[in-house]
């Protein structure tokens, strides 16, 4: 069975090369990704929100994301919100270190001892945020934590997120391959749907053939990851069915 993406927490570091605090964000993010929470976290380079594709821009909607900034400019938090989705949490190194009574770190390339302390402090704060966010329910179709005020049926619908197999413990960025997407034409408009290739493959492997009996379940699964405008379900269903038939035919032809 194909594994649909597991719930993980995204980390976007500003990585600002002009400030020692930027180096702190990068090293702290790496510490979390490789040592503190390797199985629960993913990352992406900030510029990919502009330079990458739809899958990259979907990052902060798909994963509850922690923006880690070196200074009050908050490039990571603001750019993530502008181009991907509102970060679920925001950490600013200068605020964190000031709160801990640390002086400003020095050294862009090689951090001083204060910088190393700042890395440890920031990494610990990121890991705390990861744990907090993993306890929350996340709606991938709108990129927000699910409020308890939503009715239980809707909540259950949003939580069907199968678990993936274990992954190697090495920080890898999601550039260009983070989230699989596929673009459909729905009512003459191109619409990019998150996770559609793996959803199709999952259905195909389960022997669910394209047809009326499959379409409701397919539509419900797609809705976990994508917002579907009110009144557009029939058009989405028709397009999805057509695209799924093409997918199955193509897969068969390759074999």
């Amino acid at each position: 069975m194909v594994d649909l993406p597991k719930k993980k927490v995204g980390i976007v570091a500003c990585s600002g090369e002009e400030l020692a605090e930027g180096t702190v964000t990068r090293l702290a993010a790496l510490k979390v990704l490789e040592q503190l929470r390797p199985q629960e976290t993913v990352t992406i380079c900030l510029p990919l929100f502009l330079a990458g594709g739809e899958g990259d821009r979907a990052f902060a909607r798909f994963y509850p994301t922690i923006a880690v900034d070196g200074c009050e400019l908050r490039c990571a938090a603001r750019a993530t919100e502008m181009y991907s989705g509102k970060p679920a949490a925001s950490i600013v190194v200068t605020e964190l270190t000031a709160g801990a009574g640390l002086p400003r770190p020095q050294g862009l390339r090689r951090l001083d001892q204060v910088g190393e302390k700042a890395v440890a402090l920031t990494a610990a704060r990121i890991a705390e945020s990861v744990d907090e966010l993993l306890e929350q329910r996340w709606n991938r179709s709108v990129g927000q934590a699910i409020s308890l005020s939503i009715d239980s049926g809707q909540v259950e619908n949003q939580l069907v997120v199968p678990v993936v197999s274990e992954e190697p413990i090495q920080a890898t960025c999601s550039c260009g391959s983070g989230i699989p997407v596929r673009t459909l034409v729905i009512e003459d408009q191109p619409v990019t749907l998150i996770a559609l290739p793996v959803i199709f493959e999952d259905f195909r492997q389960q022997g669910k053939l394209p047809g009326e009996g499959t379409i409701r379940e397919l539509l419900d699964t797609v809705k976990i990851y994508n917002p579907i405008p009110a009144g557009a379900e029939a058009a989405y269903a028709e397009s999805l069915l057509r695209e799924y038939a093409i997918f199955c035919a193509d897969t068969q032809a390759v074999k």
Binding site: E17, E18, L50
Partner: peptide
């Protein structure tokens, strides 16, 4: 920018361009 050509070059952080 720090060692070889500090007087002729300046570093610009990509994150600031993104923003």
């Amino acid at each position: 920018t720090e060692d070889v050509r500090p007087d002729d070059t300046q570093l610009v952080a990509l994150s600031m361009l993104v923003l």
